[in-house]
Structure formats: C-alpha cells, structure tokens
C-alpha cells in the first residue's frame, strides 16, 4: 500500500495594481516634500493622520487638509529587547500623537536611551535626506526627543 498523502502544496499568486486613493496619494506625495498632511472631519472635527478621505466615526468625506508640524507626544511605548532585521535591540516603538492630530501613529524613537522614554515625552520627526525621499512613510526615519518639558497628562490621557 502506498504512503498516504499528508500534504499538498498549491502555490497562490495574484498580481494587483495598488492605488491608495485620493487622500492617501496626497498624503504620500506630501511626505516626499517633507510635509505631513492631515485631514479634518467636517462633522466631529477630529484630525486624521494618515488621512483616508473619510471619517470612520461619522461616515463623511474629509475634505479639509492641514499640515502638521512633525512634533508630537509619546502616548504609549514598548521597548523591544530582541533584535529584528534592520534594527538592533533594544529599540523603542511608540504610539505618538502628532500635534494637531486626533489619532496616534506608531514610530520608532531613537537618539536617546530607551530607559529615558516615557509617557508625555515630547518628540519630533527625523527625515531621510531630501534626495532619498520616496512617497511613503519611510521618509520619517524615527522620532527623537525635542528636550521640551513633558506634555500635561490631560493632553494625551485619552490615547494611553
């Protein structure tokens, strides 16, 4: 009697031409110029970064664009002590609320001792050289401390 078949391999591959959408395209193009674009909901006034063209809470189009400063506040963070390809351990990932934005985004924090990172720490974006920029969020290499006094807890308590 022959061996039972226990595994079949059926490789699957599909090609797509990805279009990020109108709002995301403008966001990605602005990143090439070293600018972070957000969009404000006309109804609840929340500012989305990255913008997606719609407010997911109100279900309305977000047409108003604004440029964010590239500074922000650490709302929560994690120190990883296992290396990952391209990153030596320990490294810090943080949810950062950019000034003027109403949602947080995840970035690395560098140029400081991981032990110094704390909730409320003020940080700023460090960009890749202008000549090397592409239309993606990789243009922001990481965030680093600004040296400003820590933000007041009330300004980020809803994002912890």
């Amino acid at each position: 009697m022959s061996e039972p078949v226990t595994i079949v391999e059926t490789p699957i591959k599909l090609d797509f031409s990805y279009t990020p959408g109108v709002a995301s395209s403008r966001f990605l193009r602005s990143l090439e110029k070293g600018k972070i674009v957000g969009q404000r909901c006309p109804k609840c006034k929340k500012v989305y970064m990255p913008p997606r063209g719609a407010c997911s809470m109100c279900g309305v189009a977000t047409d108003e664009e604004l440029i964010l400063s590239g500074k922000g506040t650490v709302c929560t963070f994690c120190v990883t002590r296992i290396p990952t390809p391209g990153l030596d351990a320990p490294y810090v990932s943080a949810w950062i609320r950019l000034d003027g934005a109403d949602i947080t985004s995840m970035f690395l924090i560098q140029e400081c001792d991981p032990e110094e990172v704390r909730l409320g720490m003020r940080v700023e974006a460090v960009w890749v050289d202008e000549a090397d920029r592409e239309p993606n969020l990789g243009n922001i290499k990481y965030f680093r401390p600004t040296g400003e006094p820590d933000a007041d807890y009330d300004t980020y308590k809803d994002y912890v």
Partner: peptide
C-alpha cells in the same frame, strides 16, 4: 483610476 474603495463608496451610500 484614483479613488479607493471607500472614496468610491461614500457618495453612493450618502
């Protein structure tokens, strides 16, 4: 060509 699914859908739902 340009709009994503959400951007295409939103005005139709509205």
């Amino acid at each position: 060509p340009a709009r994503n699914e959400v951007e295409m859908l939103l005005p139709v739902v509205q």
